[in-house]
């Protein structure tokens, strides 16, 4: 048990996936990653289609899409899970370095168990002698999110402090 716990809580749940696409070009990879037509072609998952509604390729820009179950088993699965056949997903680009590096922050988007928890994903593109090497890092506990929550917590504390100070001043006068 201790080992499993260590894996879950130690450092972060950062996952690196690597692919070597032989004979592929960096330009094709970038296009598939950053255009409406490109993303719709492979984002999936299997049995689902993706329609990109908004794609603003810059830091902070939106990447919004609808995911619809199209194959019979997936449609049935969604219905049985009490979920709509089409779900909307809204994310943002967090890093954009053309043909080199792309990062986006997205709510969990697999089925089932939709949760509005953002996950940071970074894609690094490396030209290789005979194609393209891709490294994708999934970071479910990205520091930015932890920090955001910490800041929110602090702001609440400070707000409380301010209110109690005001109360004291009011009582004192």
């Amino acid at each position: 048990m201790a080992e499993g716990l260590q894996a879950s809580t130690g450092a972060k749940q950062r996952i690196k996936l690597e692919r070597h696409y032989k004979k592929a070009s960096v330009a094709d990879v970038w296009e598939l990653l950053t255009t409406k037509e490109g993303i719709e072609e492979w984002w999936g998952p299997d049995g689902f289609s993706v329609t990109v509604h908004e794609l603003d390729l810059r830091v902070g820009g939106a990447l919004n899409y609808a995911m619809s179950a199209t194959a019979a088993p997936q449609i049935e699965f969604m219905r049985n899970a009490g979920m709509p056949v089409t779900t909307e997903h809204r994310g943002n680009f967090t890093e954009v370095e053309p043909k080199t590096r792309l990062a986006f922050s997205f709510p969990v988007d697999f089925v089932p168990g939709q949760a509005a928890y953002p996950i940071e994903t970074t894609v690094e593109i490396f030209p290789a002698a005979d194609g393209v090497r891709l490294i994708v890092t999934l970071d479910p506990m990205h520091d930015a999110h932890w920090n955001d929550m910490m800041v929110q917590g602090w702001e609440m504390e400070l707000g409380r402090l301010e209110r109690s100070l005001e109360k004291r001043l009011a009582q004192g006068s």
Binding site: Q13, L17, Y21, D28, E41, W43, P45, D46, D109, V136
Partner: peptide, 19 residues
């Protein structure tokens, strides 16, 4: 996390097919 990883593994396979 394992399921999320599997989602992305499949996704990257499809990206390879698209390429």
């Amino acid at each position: 996390v394992t399921r999320y990883r599997e989602l992305w593994e499949a996704r990257l396979d499809r990206l390879g097919e698209a390429l």
